[in-house]
Nucleic acid binder design. Structure first.
Length: 272
DNA sequence: AGGTTGACCTGGACGC
DNA sequence: TGCGTCCAGGTCAACC
């Protein structure tokens, strides 16, 4: 499900519902692949802590915690993978298949992590400055720094956009949508993109991400926010999952090609 | 060192 | 109805 706009929507809705709540008890499924930290590492960090803030960093959801009145030295990090959902529910709500974590809150609600494909990850993070993510934030980077990020690389621009160590937060949908709006083919080498095109791509990416955040993200199959509500940006998709359908601008059929193992959608006439 | 591929998972859609 | 194939919002380790 989750790229920057979806993760931001989940983090914000989770913050609204759970900020200030105290965690009384936690439970984790017996699925070691989902736990980047062990249950034994996470339990003492979470139990008895108060949720100070929930926010997005890249594609990660960061829980800032309080121990009494003091900031905890540890943060709880949730990565939704492909199909992860982080929900606030009443305790009597049916426990769905593939539930991997339940946090019981003092206010009576529960935070639940549900993830059928188990590509999601739960972990504890400890460091001086807190969790900063693998790369740079696409929403705040300047056009100049954006172009600099990709300098000296020889890879399809699509692969570069998906590289979380450079920009973090951009995934398959928004990479395709930004490239379409900038008129650049996903197969183009980063080495042969002009300054003017970098500027255009930066602008297009920013615009697409902002608009998607405003619409609560894209619900393609099963993505929902912490309140179980779907996003609506999928109705604005111009290329993603529109293979063979006519381009909205020129009517040419949208093409699909696999780049870096991910299907990439583009207009063969509008994107060069 | 940087770039690409396949593995990790479940489940839904589609063809026969 | 069922079975086989392909595909899906993401990362990693293992190769070139």
């Amino acid at each position: 499900m989750p790229e920057l706009p979806e993760v931001e929507t989940v983090a914000n809705s989770m913050h609204r519902r759970a900020a200030g709540a105290r965690i009384e008890h936690v439970w984790f499924s017996n699925m070691p692949q989902t736990m980047r930290s062990t249950a034994a590492e996470m339990e003492p960090v979470l139990e008895g802590a108060t949720i100070e803030r929930v926010r997005r960093v890249g594609k990660h959801i960061v829980f800032d915690l309080l121990r009494g009145k003091k900031r905890s030295d540890a943060q709880w990090i949730v990565h939704l993978g492909m199909t992860g959902r982080l929900l606030v529910t009443k305790p009597e709500a049916e426990i769905e298949k593939h539930t991997h974590a339940i946090l019981k809150l003092r206010d009576g609600n529960e935070i639940r992590f549900v993830d059928p494909r188990r590509f999601g990850k739960l972990s504890v993070h400890r460091s001086e400055g807190g969790f900063t993510g693998p790369g740079v934030e696409p929403t705040t980077i300047t056009a100049k720094d954006f172009a600099k990020l990709f300098k000296g690389r020889r890879t399809p621009v699509k692969s570069a956009l998906l590289n979380q160590k450079l920009l973090h937060g951009v995934g398959n949908i928004y990479a395709d949508e930004a490239l379409n709006r900038a008129g650049i083919r996903p197969t183009r080498s980063t080495a042969r993109i002009t300054q003017a095109e970098w500027k255009k791509l930066h602008g297009a990416l920013l615009k697409v991400l902002k608009e998607a955040i405003k619409l609560g993200g894209s619900s393609v199959s099963d993505y929902v926010n912490a309140d179980g509500e779907e996003g609506t940006f999928q109705i604005r998709h111009r290329v993603y999952m529109r293979t063979g359908l006519p381009c909205f601008k020129c009517k040419a059929p949208i093409a699909r090609r696999v780049i870096a193992g991910r299907s990439s959608h583009y207009c063969p006439q509008c994107q060069h």
